[in-house]
Computed example of a mutant assay.
Amino acid sequence: MKIVGIAGSIVGSKTKTAMNYTMEQIRKNYPEVQITLLDLAEHELAFSDGRNYFEYEGDTKYVTETIMEADAIIIGTPTFQASIPATLKNIFDLLPVNAFRDKVVSILVTAGTAKHYLMVEQQLKPILAYMKAHIVPTYVFIEEKDFMRKEIVNDDILFRIERLVEDTILHAHAVRGIQEEKDKKYDF
């Protein structure tokens, strides 16, 4: 199984801190899983211009192909102006409309206040559903107060991240099983 984590911003440290902890939990508890963390701050991405994702070059090609090859994706995003960052939206624009078909996608969000949870419900989940993702129903929402000196200091958040990892892997196994059953019907 391949899981790709996306740290969906080019600025700040909280989302990257949370995603590093998430990837470490996968590495520690599921060593058989192949993981890749795509920190968008470490890649030079072209703006989407309507081409197919495989026609891009360099970092853009690497990032989009890595996402397309994943069985599951954990999206980590900060909340900017009550919305997702443009860097993350650009990733969605670079990918085809069915990019997340048969993929499990889970969500981890950092925000300044609890009121920004609506961004997930009203913006991010609809985009993922439109792109055919199997969305893990629960997500982790981390507020400013849960961090201190670039570390998560709220034990409940750490527990919820561990649960998110477990739920992501369980959902990915379930989706794979469903797909195998469908394939058996058609003798593939």
Rank of each mutant, 00 (worst) to 15 (best):
41 A>P: 09
32 E>K: 10
91 I>N: 03
107 I>H: 01
25 Q>I: 09
139 Y>C: 03
175 V>A: 04
142 I>F: 03
173 H>L: 13
161 I>L: 03
172 A>F: 10
3 I>M: 02
65 E>R: 11
119 M>L: 12
24 E>M: 07
168 T>P: 01
59 D>G: 05
105 V>N: 01
167 D>L: 06
57 E>T: 14
74 I>L: 07
131 M>S: 09
86 A>W: 03
49 D>Q: 07
187 D>R: 14
107 I>N: 00
77 T>E: 00
92 F>I: 00
5 G>W: 03
10 I>Y: 07
170 L>D: 09
42 E>M: 12
88 L>G: 04
2 K>E: 08
13 S>D: 12
100 F>Y: 05
164 L>M: 07
150 K>G: 11
1 M>N: 06
87 T>G: 08
28 K>T: 15
121 E>C: 10
60 T>F: 04
94 L>W: 04
171 H>N: 14
94 L>E: 02
181 E>V: 08
96 P>D: 10
29 N>M: 10
37 L>H: 10
40 L>W: 00
139 Y>W: 13
143 E>T: 14
153 V>D: 04
72 A>F: 07
30 Y>G: 03
160 R>K: 11
130 Y>W: 14
32 E>I: 08
166 E>N: 12
118 L>R: 08
173 H>E: 14
68 M>S: 05
104 V>K: 01
99 A>W: 00
66 T>L: 08
88 L>Q: 03
13 S>T: 13
16 K>W: 05
159 F>T: 15
3 I>V: 15
57 E>Y: 11
30 Y>Q: 05
188 F>V: 15
71 D>E: 08
79 T>G: 00
91 I>M: 08
50 G>I: 07
165 V>C: 02
36 T>S: 10
73 I>H: 02
125 K>T: 03
111 A>I: 04
26 I>F: 06
94 L>G: 04
75 I>L: 04
130 Y>A: 13
126 P>A: 00
11 V>K: 14
37 L>Y: 09
116 H>V: 02
53 Y>W: 15
186 Y>P: 04
159 F>H: 15
55 E>S: 12
20 N>V: 06
39 D>N: 13
159 F>G: 13
74 I>P: 00
61 K>Y: 14
149 R>Y: 13
104 V>L: 08
32 E>G: 12
151 E>L: 09
167 D>R: 07
60 T>W: 01
171 H>V: 13
30 Y>P: 01
142 I>E: 03
162 E>F: 05
115 K>D: 08
142 I>K: 01
3 I>C: 04
152 I>H: 00
33 V>P: 02
171 H>Q: 13
18 A>K: 01
139 Y>L: 01
16 K>M: 11
183 D>C: 10
174 A>C: 12
136 V>A: 01
25 Q>R: 09
36 T>I: 13
141 F>E: 04
160 R>Q: 07
6 I>Q: 02
52 N>E: 15
40 L>N: 02
89 K>A: 10
182 K>Q: 15
181 E>P: 06
28 K>F: 09
180 E>Q: 14
42 E>P: 02
124 L>K: 02
58 G>Y: 05
157 I>Q: 02
65 E>P: 04
97 V>S: 13
119 M>N: 06
69 E>K: 12
54 F>V: 09
139 Y>I: 07
66 T>A: 05
10 I>M: 09
122 Q>S: 15
150 K>A: 11
48 S>K: 04
13 S>H: 15
132 K>E: 11
148 M>E: 15
137 P>Q: 12
125 K>M: 10
